[in-house]
Amino acid sequence: MTDKQRRVWDRSAPRYDRQIEFLERRWFTGGREWLGARATGRVLEVAVGTGRQLPHYPPGVTVTGVDLSAGMLTIAPRAGLRRVLGDAEHLPFGDATFDTVVCALGLCTIPDPVAAIGEMKRVLVRGGRLLLLDHIGGVAPVRAAQWLLERVTIPTAGEHFTRRQLPAVRQAGFEIVESQRLKAGTVERVHGRKP
């Protein structure tokens, strides 16, 4: 699945910013600002894509972005970002390398989110912050529509709409500092701390 997803994201990279802009304004409103306000120190952004999160980080942080798609990374800004081609399930960094790990709208497409969250924990220092923003399964009637949509999006792009990351974050042993569900339960923000 990883090779297929790489091809999908490489093909969609030139159009990605235009396609996601409306959803970010209407559906994920304030999510990137929420992530940026909590990021500190050495930041790793997993599934950095085209770098849409970069303007929302505070001054003084250093940002490394990792993405599976070379096409996405070529669009991501060169200034202010160390770009690394890599897989979220096998992060190419040493243990306890980062103070904050951010993943914005990425876990929904990572084939094994549990493995990716485990890797995010591994590369965090003790007391490090995990910051997630993603779409998840909403309230009952919305969830049914999301499930139907997944019949198309999972086989074509590996895109899941009914996953929920919070249980995996808890299972990985993170302390939950805060979590929010918005937009009929379809958007979740999670701030975890590595003990």
Score class of each variant (00 low, 15 high):
Asp3Ala: 07
Lys4Ile: 06
Gln5Thr: 00
Ala13Tyr: 06
Pro14Asn: 01
Tyr16Thr: 11
Ile20Met: 15
Phe22Thr: 13
Glu24Tyr: 10
Arg25Trp: 11
Phe28Cys: 09
Phe28Ala: 13
Gly31Pro: 07
Trp34Gln: 05
Ala37Ile: 05
Ala39Thr: 09
Thr40Leu: 06
Glu45Pro: 05
Val48Ile: 15
Val48Asn: 01
Gly51Thr: 11
Gly51Lys: 05
Arg52Cys: 07
Gln53Lys: 00
Leu54Met: 12
Leu54Arg: 09
Pro55His: 04
Pro58Asn: 06
Pro58Phe: 10
Thr62Phe: 00
Val63Gly: 05
Asp67Arg: 07
Gly71Tyr: 07
Leu73Cys: 13
Pro77Leu: 13
Pro77His: 01
Ala79Gly: 09
Ala79Gln: 09
Arg82Pro: 02
Arg83Ile: 13
Val84Ala: 14
Glu89Gly: 06
Glu89Lys: 04
Glu89Trp: 03
His90Gln: 13
Asp95Ser: 03
Phe98Gly: 01
Cys103Met: 14
Cys103Gly: 13
Cys103Trp: 08
Ala104Phe: 06
Leu107Trp: 09
Thr109Arg: 02
Pro111Ala: 08
Val114Leu: 11
Lys121Ala: 05
Gly127Tyr: 00
His135Gln: 12
Gly137Met: 08
Gly137Leu: 05
Gly137Ile: 07
Val139Asn: 08
Arg143Lys: 15
Arg143Met: 04
Trp147Ala: 08
Leu148Met: 12
Leu149Glu: 03
Thr153Val: 00
Ile154Met: 03
Thr156Arg: 08
Gly158Trp: 00
Glu159Gly: 12
Arg164Gly: 08
Pro167Thr: 12
Val169Tyr: 01
Ala172Trp: 12
Phe174Asp: 04
Gly185Cys: 10
Val187Gln: 03
Glu188Asp: 14
Val190Cys: 02
Val190Asn: 08
Arg193Tyr: 04
Arg193Thr: 02
Lys194Phe: 00
